[in-house]
C-alpha cells in the first residue's frame, strides 16, 4: 500500500468531505482502482459504514463491500441491500447488459471507460436504465494503467515501501518521452497517465445536446480553477477554448472521436465558435 495514502487519515478525508458538503457541493468518494491489501479493504469498509457520502466503486471488491459482504449481512437480506453508488470508469462497463447489471445493484451514476467513443457513450446513455445518470471524463491526464509497482520510486531507485515520498517533488508526475523526444506518457506512482491532457471543452455543446448529466475534470497542480471556470462557461453556452498553458504537452480527444486516445481531432459539426446559443 502506498504510504502517502496515509498522509490524510480517514477522518481527514471525511472532514474535507463534510466541509465541501456544507458549502453546498455534492461529494463522491472515489475508491481505489487497485485494492490489493487488507488495509485497502478495511479503509473502504469504514468509508462505506460511515455512510455519509456516495462512494464511487472502481473495483469489484468495492461492489462486494457495498453489497454488504463479509458475512455482516444475513444472506436473505443481501438481495435487499442496495446501497447507492457511482460505477466508476474502471469497472469496465462497455455494454448495455453490464450497465443494467450495475444499475440493478444500486448504481445511481456511471462513468464510461475513457477509451469509449462518443457514439458508444451516446448509445448506452440513450438506453440506460431509468434513474441512472451518466458522467463523462472531460479534462485531465488520462489514467491509462495501474500497477503494483510505484514507477516514481522505481525511477529514483527506491523501494515502494521506503520511497521517501519522492513523488511529492513531482505533483503532476514524471514525463516519459520516446527516444526521439515525443512527450508520450507520465509516470505518477502506480499510475501511467497520458502526457497530453484529454479535453472535451470544445465538445461541451454536443455533450449538452446528448443530455449527459456530468463531466469530470481531473485535478492538476496548476490552472485548476481556470479549467473549472472554462467548463462551467462552456456548459452555459459561452465560447471558450482550452489555454495552451493548461497542458504544455498538448491536448488529446481521440477516444471520444473513436480513434487512438493520443490523437487530437476537430469536433465534428460543432465548431467551438458555435457554442454560443
Amino acid at each position: 500500500m502506498c504510504a502517502r495514502r496515509r498522509e490524510l487519515r480517514r477522518e481527514d478525508w471525511l472532514g474535507l468531505a463534510r466541509d465541501l458538503s456544507s458549502a453546498g457541493k455534492q461529494v463522491v468518494l472515489s475508491a481505489q482502482v487497485l485494492l490489493e491489501s487488507e488495509a485497502d479493504l478495511r479503509q473502504l469498509r469504514h468509508l462505506i459504514d460511515d455512510g455519509s457520502f456516495l462512494i464511487e466503486a472502481n473495483d469489484l471488491g468495492a461492489i462486494g463491500l457495498l453489497r454488504g459482504a463479509s458475512a455482516r449481512v444475513p444472506a436473505e437480506l443481501m438481495a435487499l441491500q442496495r446501497i447507492p453508488f457511482v460505477a466508476g470508469p474502471h469497472l469496465n462497463i462497455y455494454n448495455e447488459a453490464t450497465l443494467a447489471f450495475f444499475a440493478g445493484l444500486g448504481a445511481v451514476r456511471w462513468v464510461p471507460p475513457l477509451e469509449m467513443s462518443r457514439e458508444r457513450v451516446a448509445q448506452l446513455h440513450a438506453g440506460r436504465p431509468a434513474g441512472l445518470a451518466t458522467e463523462v471524463f472531460a479534462f485531465g491526464r488520462m489514467p491509462l494503467a495501474f500497477s503494483a509497482r510505484c514507477f516514481t520510486a522505481r525511477h529514483v531507485g527506491l523501494n515502494r515501501d521506503d520511497c521517501e515520498y519522492r513523488c511529492m517533488e513531482h505533483p503532476d508526475g514524471l514525463e516519459l518521452s520516446t527516444r526521439e523526444g515525443q512527450e508520450f506518457l507520465v509516470i505518477n506512482g502506480i499510475q501511467t497517465q497520458s502526457a497530453r491532457r484529454h479535453t472535451l471543452l470544445a465538445e461541451m455543446s454536443d455533450i449538452a445536446d446528448l443530455n449527459i448529466d456530468a463531466v469530470r475534470i481531473s485535478p492538476q497542480s496548476h490552472h485548476c480553477l481556470e479549467i473549472i471556470a472554462a467548463f462551467a462557461a462552456a456548459r452555459d453556452g459561452q465560447s471558450v477554448t482550452a489555454a495552451p498553458e493548461w497542458s504544455p504537452e498538448g491536448y488529446a480527444n481521440g477516444y471520444w472521436h473513436g480513434t487512438a486516445g493520443i490523437n487530437l481531432e476537430s469536433p465534428k459539426g460543432h465548431d467551438v465558435k458555435d457554442i454560443q446559443r
Binding site: V33, L34, L144, A145, F146, S147, L185, T192
Partner: peptide, 21 residues
C-alpha cells in the same frame, strides 16, 4: 504484464485498439 490487467488502456491510447475492446 505488470499492469492490472483489464484496466490498461495504453494500447488504445497509442493505436485505438485495446485488449478490452
Amino acid at each position: 504484464c505488470v499492469m492490472n490487467e483489464g484496466r490498461c488502456w495504453l494500447s488504445s491510447y497509442a493505436t485505438g485498439e485495446s485488449p478490452n475492446t
